[in-house]
Design a protein around this nucleic acid. Structure first.
Length: 896
RNA sequence: GGGCGAAUAGCUCAGCUGGUUCAGAGCGCCUGCCUUACACGCAGGAUGUCGGGGGUUCGAAUCCCUCUUCGCCCACCA
């Protein structure tokens, strides 16, 4: 602790070494045998970043918040666990490695499944720790000894266990349905993974001729190319326009196939023409219509969304959009295109590559969600699961209520292979679901082959709250840390992950995995656009750490975002965003530097049974004031942290440290510290203690600078860390209302003197005399006690108490009616002073008159609480008093 | 189409249960200061019909209705 303390705080020198010391000392590790058992557990599951991820501001935001919470709870004495891990991120990771292969001119199909998976593992082993290392740079206090990867053997076992159990309960099934298909990633997606994007499309009105040549029927469609797979036209059964046509045959143009007109209640007669083409293989609604009417399904597309062999030769091989053009053109040629109108509608896009999703008919595995959603909804309704912001709970409930089955199979190679084996003997053909790998059919002992598909990444993620703790084994960690407490993430992840974790927790563990879900906002640029790679409007958090420090990054995030709002940062002007927090760290550093440099001897304690304890009667008014302010700040900050309102905690601490402690208290104690006044030891004791408390309160948000300062306080040893200190508790005896009010009057007086000086351009170096009169006894005592403070900070040579004003001067009146007079003599511009006083009197008079009418309002006096009425009366009296005082001043100056 | 939210200083936002933080903070702007902790600083200052309208109330930035403008989530109207 003996490094020189420079006047400018340099985070680069402090942060990294300090972080290493924290880790070496095991401060973030849960259930360390060498550490005293702490209180009840507090667990935050870190949303595992994708193993390929590189830290961006979104991570910076979410993990800073989580770290603030976990540090706060740790200091409060909870047995904390912030459990980190990485996600194998099926599609994302596979895409990354496929791109690497592409650079070598290869595809995954060239090298084959086994080699490809090996290749991905190599990639993951090389780069997989990147993001976790980056998290350390921003100060994350996660328990790295417990880091998991969602493809680890333990977690894979949990995945298999969960799959088998769901299957045993009949909640997993394989089915032939329309799913969302990404023609670029060549896999099925869940509904959540197909992100709806509003798109400007067109609505084509096509004429379908009747087979008997008796006319035509117009159908409207947004996807004309799918007509090649139409197997019916549907109308609403009650639609009188078409009821006579039901059963009639259409001769499908271009393909010359005859298809029936059917009646189905799913059709909305008011949309388009009221007649709909039915393509069971390429639209979910049409699929259902097809089932109801036993229509054939014609799959017209390849996995890449090109036209398949099932369509006329001239269309085969065309991309779906090319095919669309071609179909429309041919309809036009045939005179069968009635009209085209623009039409805005939502189209699903792959959440990984943004390709428009193709509804595709295929065999997939699904989880039946309704039975799982029921208890998950109940948990919310009963209050076992809460949300911040609260209204997000309704979002959750709405999703649960409308839940649809979850397609969990993916046609990828990177992931948990589906634990199902099919008997290759066609006579048997049994599908076996198994916890262990099968080499033979349990039914006929024939050869088996495992399902080729892997599971949705989120199928491992939803188990994380317990799989990361050892489930299905009953491990000590599982017993100690399930269920957890708070889950912090972005609202986008609510359905992907949060909602599903609740369902899995209830299903497999019988308890919600966390009781509070905190959904924070998004990082955006100054134009409110999401930060993204493609827009190039991102900010690299590590760049911010390098230039401003991790503390500044964290403070900016935490202080700049209140519950439910987004964080706006300017990517081209980091200075505007991060300098204020950097300046704050520097301010702290310098306040600490000042206090520390004055702590030469032993520091007397403020409380306790020590012989040298500072006694109450030794405290100056300023001491009592700062102690009371400090105590109030402890209360405010603790309450704010507790409610996850970090911006409020931050601003309370900021205000205390900067405005109260640095601007006033440190200025106040200088004469005592320099030996010009007695009581230096008391000032030192109070300054050291209140500063220590304040940096303790700030530590969860700015862990580095506060730890560095704390460790430099006297009596610290290398093995003690602020990170493991106990949270300050408010001390009722410290809230000294009288001292606070008195010192505030002193502040007000100094402020009034300064304002008058500035108003009349009194040179900064010039001392003036001041006199005050008309104050209460309490105020007089305060001014007498703090006379030196008033003189020093107001640059007042002589402070007259209750001395009558003499000569020409500037006047002001304090809120309690105290009259201030600065005899400025020739400096004073009498005309200006008259005008100033006049304006002030007018302002007060208008307050007085509105206050008078308020108080003469019988309704107000009788209905408002007595305390409120009393306060209002006092205000009125005070304002009247101030008017009187100022009017006298004006008279004395001889104002007209 | 269903659900939810937001509008307060030039900018970003606080303001929680209607009245003692009630019109605030930071940034920006103006004036003056290198006062031996800090110019990443100190002191002083200007700036608002609290989106419009209506209502409830003794009292509304705060509660209710309505309009306007933005945003988010969900959704199979082809």
């Amino acid at each position: 602790m003996t490094e020189p303390i420079s006047p400018q705080y340099d985070p680069a020198q402090i942060e990294a070494p300090l972080y290493r010391r924290w880790v070496t000392a095991g401060l973030f590790e849960a259930r360390r045998p060498d550490q005293h058992p702490a209180g009840p557990s507090y667990v935050i599951q870190m949303p595992p970043p994708n193993v390929t991820a590189v830290l961006h501001m979104g991570h910076g935001l979410t993990y800073s918040i989580q770290d603030v919470i976990i540090r706060f709870e740790r200091m409060r004495g909870r047995e904390t666990l912030w459990l980190p891990g990485t996600d194998h991120a099926g599609i994302a990771t596979q895409n990354v490695v496929e791109r690497l292969l592409a650079k070598e001119g290869q595809t995954r199909f060239d090298i084959g499944r086994e080699a490809f998976v090996r290749r991905v593992w190599e990639f993951v082993r090389e780069t997989g720790d990147t993001i976790l290392d980056q998290l350390k740079a921003i100060g994350s206090s996660a328990d790295w000894t417990r880091t998991y990867f969602t493809l680890d053997a333990d977690l894979s076992r949990a995945v298999r266990e969960a799959f088998v159990r769901l299957h045993e309960r009949g909640l997993v099934y394989r089915g032939h349905y329309i799913i969302n298909w990404c023609p670029r990633c060549l896999t099925a997606l869940s509904n959540e993974e197909a992100e709806k994007e509003e798109t400007d499309g067109k609505l084509w009105h096509l004429r379908y001729p009747f087979a008997d040549g008796s006319g035509q029927l117009t159908v409207a469609t947004t996807r004309p190319e799918t007509m090649l797979g139409d197997t019916a036209v549907a109308v609403h059964p009650d639609d009188e326009r078409y009821s006579h046509l039901i059963g009639k045959l259409i001769r499908l143009p271009l393909v010359e196939r005859e298809i029936p007109i059917v009646a189905d209640a799913a059709i909305d007669p008011s949309f388009g023409s009221g007649a709909v083409k039915v393509t069971p293989a390429h639209d979910p609604v049409d699929f259902e219509i097809g089932q109801r009417h036993e229509l054939p399904t014609i799959d017209i597309m390849t996995p890449e969304a090109r036209m398949a062999e099932t369509v006329p030769a001239r269309f085969q091989g065309l991309d779906r959009y090319e095919a669309r053009k071609r179909v429309v053109a041919e309809f036009e040629q045939l005179g069968l295109l009635e009209r085209v109108e623009t039409h805005r509608h939502a189209v699903g896009h792959c959440y990984r590559c943004d390709t428009a999703v193709e509804p595709r008919l295929s065999d997939q595995w699904f989880v039946r969600m309704a039975p799982l959603a029921k208890p998950a909804l109940e948990a919310y309704r009963s209050g076992a699961l809460r949300f911040i912001p609260e209204h997000q709970g309704e979002n959750y409930a709405q999703w649960m209520e409308n839940i649809r089955d979850w397609c969990i199979s993916r046609q990828l190679w990177w992931g948990h292979r589906i634990p199902v084996w099919y008997c290759e003997d066609p006579a048997c053909g049994k599908a076996s679901v198994s916890r262990t790998d099968l080499s033979a059919c349990p039914e006929c002992f024939g050869t088996v082959r495992q399902d080729e598909d892997v599971l949705d990444t989120w199928f491992s993620s939803w188990l994380v709250p317990f799989s990361s703790l050892g489930w299905p084994d009953q491990t000590p960690d599982l017993a100690a840390f399930y269920p957890g407490h708070t889950l912090v993430t972005a609202p986008e992840i609510l359905f992907f992950w949060v909602a599903r974790m609740v369902m899995a927790g209830l299903e497999f563990m019988g308890a919600v995995p966390f009781s509070l879900v905190y959904l924070h906002g998004t990082v955006r640029d100054t134009q409110h656009r999401k930060m993204s790679k493609s827009l190039g409007n991102g900010i690299d958090p590590l760049d911010v750490v390098t230039r401003y420090g991790a503390d500044a990054l964290r403070y900016t995030i935490v202080a700049g975002m209140s519950v439910g709002t987004d964080l706006l940062l300017d990517p081209v002007d980091l200075e505007t965003s991060f300098a204020p927090a950097r300046n704050f760290a520097n301010k702290l550093w310098n306040a600490g530097r000042f206090i520390l440099s004055n702590l030469d001897g032993p520091v007397r304690p403020l409380a306790g049974a020590h012989s040298n304890v500072v006694r109450r009667e030794e405290l100056a008014l300023a001491d009592r004031w700062i102690i009371a302010r400090c105590d109030a700040t402890v209360r405010e900050a603790t309450a704010a942290y507790d409610k996850l309102r970090f911006n409020e905690a931050a601003s309370a601490i900021y205000h205390f440290l900067w405005s109260d402690l640095a601007d006033w208290y440190i200025e106040q104690i200088k004469p005592r510290l320099y030996g010009d006044q007695p009581g230096g030891d008391v000032a030192r004791a109070v300054a050291a203690r209140t500063f220590e408390i304040a940096i303790t309160l700030l530590h969860p948000i700015m862990p580095f600078v506060t730890e560095a300062l704390w460790q430099r306080l006297p009596g610290r040893t290398d093995d003690r860390f602020l990170s493991r200190e106990r949270w300050p508790t408010p001390d009722g005896r410290a809230s000294d209302a009288a001292a606070v009010r008195s010192f505030e009057l002193v502040q007000e007086l100094v402020g009034a003197v300064r304002a008058l000086r500035a108003e009349y351009g009194v040179e900064p170096g010039r001392n003036v005399r001041a006199s005050v009169s008309g104050m209460s006894t309490a105020a007089e005592q305060a001014f007498r006690a703090e006379a030196l403070t008033i003189r020093r900070l107001g640059k007042v040579t002589e402070l007259g108490l209750n001395v009558p004003a003499e000569g020409i001067g500037a006047s002001a009146v304090l809120s309690d009616g105290t009259s201030l007079f600065l005899p400025l003599g020739e400096i004073l511009d009498v005309g200006k002073e008259c005008a100033r006083l006049g304006a002030e009197i007018e302002r007060l008079k208008s307050l007085v008159s509105s206050q008078e009418s308020k108080l003469s309002n019988q309704q107000f006096v009788s209905r408002a609480p007595a305390a409120v009425v009393e306060r209002e009366r006092e205000k009125l009296l005070s304002w009247r008093e101030q008017v009187t005082v100022l009017s006298e001043k004006r008279q004395r100056l001889g104002c007209k």
